[in-house]
């Protein structure tokens, strides 16, 4: 039953790696775009926040499911 915790940990870490890479690239491209055309900065920032939220979706669903695993599937082990 302890494997559930390892499963949740793997799920969290891989989702976090993916999201971190995505956010890093997104931020880099935002600064690049703003440097190239500063007058577009507000529009770029708006789009960046929207995409940051969308990138956030997958790891947060991963967090949700792994918390479900920890607290519901293996309450004894998790608590």
């Amino acid at each position: 039953m302890e494997l559930v915790i390892i499963a949740a940990a793997i799920m969290l870490s891989s989702a976090a790696i993916g999201a971190a890479l995505g956010m890093g690239l997104l931020g880099g491209k935002l600064i690049e775009g703003t440097a190239r055309q500063p007058e577009l900065a507000p529009m770029l920032q708006g789009k960046m926040f929207l995409l940051a939220g969308l990138i956030d979706a997958i790891p947060i669903i991963g967090v949700g499911i792994s918390m479900y695993l920890i607290f519901v599937v293996a309450p004894g082990v998790g608590a």
Binding site: D56, A57, I61
Partner: peptide
């Protein structure tokens, strides 16, 4: 599915 779980996940993690 993603629409619901994105909002729920963010708020649940924040609350936790």
């Amino acid at each position: 599915f993603s629409l619901a779980l994105r909002l729920f996940g963010n708020m649940f993690a924040g609350e936790m």
